[in-house]
Design a protein around this nucleic acid. Structure first.
Length: 253
DNA sequence: AAAAGGTTCAACCGCGGGTGC
DNA sequence: TGCACCCGCGGTTGAACCTTT
């Protein structure tokens, strides 16, 4: 509002930095320190705005930057700090030596956020997804049964319906007739494993074998209030409630 | 081998807070 | 008090890269 972008001025370059530009910036800062970002590019002989220089330095060229994959400890720290601080990336970065806010933000959005969603956790609140909880509440009510679920079938997302059907089946004895009614609507119970490791990104999440116990998945495990210990770990029982890969979360967003 | 689709991450943008005049 | 300027933050973009078909 009012103020023009700092890079609008004629001749100022935008886009990826060249090695020559990097060298100029590094050499200038090594000699004079970061100082005034507004005047730095002119003094350093760079056709860039100060903002671009500051970003390049703080996010990439700074000598104390740690590059490479995030460790398990770092990942855990990010999740814990995010649950307290929210999207305060700079505050989170301040507690992770060598990591920048930009790097953490990117890592959150591309890795952690997706994993939490896949595990049925709202990445904003760090609680089980409310829409799934509402569904679970429905299923937990004493009036709710298979027929009422089938009545809802036309009204809700088919994938949510499948999930509800599976949860209901896990809680109740299903008669052969009911089973027939639900045929084709249910995902195989073994799809709801506990805290599967994410094969695509070499996750450090603990991988538990899919076995018959999975079929006894309890709504309590979704609804229970976590203890402090459970809150401490993003692989707590709450987090172990996993949504199948086939579920498209965008439909719920 | 090539095209299409998906993912990653460096870099940009706009806004708000702090400071000095 | 109001204005101008600087700095830093969080959200977003888009090119490069990777994977799948």
């Amino acid at each position: 509002m009012g103020r023009s972008p700092c890079c609008d001025k004629n001749g100022l370059k935008k886009g990826p930095w060249t090695p020559e530009e990097d060298n100029k910036l590094i050499q200038y800062i090594q000699l004079h320190g970061p100082g005034n970002w507004r005047t730095l590019p002119k003094n350093a002989g760079l056709q860039r705005c100060g903002k671009s220089c500051r970003l390049r330095w703080t996010n990439y060229l700074r000598p104390d930057i740690k590059r490479g994959r995030f460790s398990f400890d770092e990942e855990e720290t990010i999740i814990q700090l995010h649950s307290v601080l929210g999207n305060k990336w700079s505050a989170i970065a301040a507690r992770l030596p060598g990591r920048t806010d930009n790097e953490i933000k990117n890592y959150w959005n591309t890795h952690i956020r997706k994993r939490l969603l896949r595990n049925g956790i709202d990445p904003v609140t760090h609680s089980p997804r409310l829409d799934l909880l509402d569904l679970s509440s429905l299923l937990n009510s004493t009036q709710f049964n298979l027929s009422s679920l089938l009545g809802l079938q036309a009204l809700i997302n088919p994938e949510v319906f499948s999930l509800a059907a599976t949860l209901l089946a896990s809680q109740n004895e299903i008669t052969p007739e009911e089973s027939y009614l639900m045929n084709g609507q249910m995902l195989p119970p073994q799809n709801y494993g506990y805290c599967n490791s994410d094969a695509s990104d070499n996750s450090n999440f603990q991988s538990l074998n899919n076995n018959s116990s999975n079929q006894n998945i309890s709504l309590d495990s979704v609804l229970s209030t976590p203890t402090e210990d459970e809150k401490e770990s993003y692989c707590s029982n709450l987090m172990k409630f996993e949504i199948p890969e086939s579920l498209n979360f965008d439909d719920f967003m």
